[in-house]
């Protein structure tokens, strides 16, 4: 069941003019994806892998849409080349709503391994990174979405287990 926060996030995306979203699911993103499926103003085109998804977003952007990607932090292990050679090389604005698995509250030990690399990868790529830990942190989302367009850059919004739990 989608929470008020899931609805708030999608409302903010809509208000920022985001009209194309690709996603690969995560348990923490299930509510957002459920809301997206019922949001006619946003074209939701699921992808099989996040680098593929970023290709779709690049095309949608050049076609005049405002894309975003919804993905798990483990996907950062997949998309480094695509972020550098496609999204950054051609300066494509791309908000990345990322579930931050492997943080405090995580039940699956294996998720911790990529959590340890998540911010390091984003830092290495010089990607503006925001970390939502408490529900009130989400108040920054509209500003972050505007910032991504202004800067023509990918930006990462990491949402951890504490954020989702307290927002439920």
């Amino acid at each position: 069941m989608a929470t008020t926060m899931d609805h708030q996030i999608v409302e903010d995306l809509k208000a920022a003019g985001i009209d194309y979203i690709t996603s690969v699911p995560c348990k923490q993103l299930a509510g957002v994806i459920e809301v997206l499926e019922g949001t006619s103003e946003i074209m939701h085109m699921p992808s099989n892998k996040e680098d593929e998804g970023m290709g779709l977003c690049a095309g949608a952007f050049m076609g005049g849409m405002k894309p975003a990607i919804v993905m798990q932090n483990t996907a950062l292990g997949v998309v480094v080349n695509t972020l550098a050679t496609l999204i950054q090389f051609y300066q494509i604005p791309l908000p990345m709503l990322i579930s931050y698995r492997g943080e405090v509250g995580e039940p699956v030990a294996c998720q911790v391994e990529m959590a340890l690399h998540t911010k390091a990868i984003l830092n290495q790529l010089h990607i503006p990174t925001y970390h939502f830990h408490k529900p009130e942190d989400a108040a920054e989302l509209p500003g972050i979405l505007e910032y991504a367009q202004m800067a023509s850059k990918p930006v990462a919004i990491l949402c951890d287990a504490s954020f989702w739990r307290a927002s439920a």
Binding site: Y20, D51, G53, G55, A58, G59, M62, G64, N81
Partner: peptide, 22 residues
């Protein structure tokens, strides 16, 4: 012509996203 200069595999994906958008 959009020359995709560095991202092996994504020409079809970029094309599909572009076709969907306009």
């Amino acid at each position: 012509n959009f020359y995709m200069l560095g991202t092996m595999g994504l020409s079809s994906s970029i094309g599909l996203g572009l076709a969907a958008a306009q």
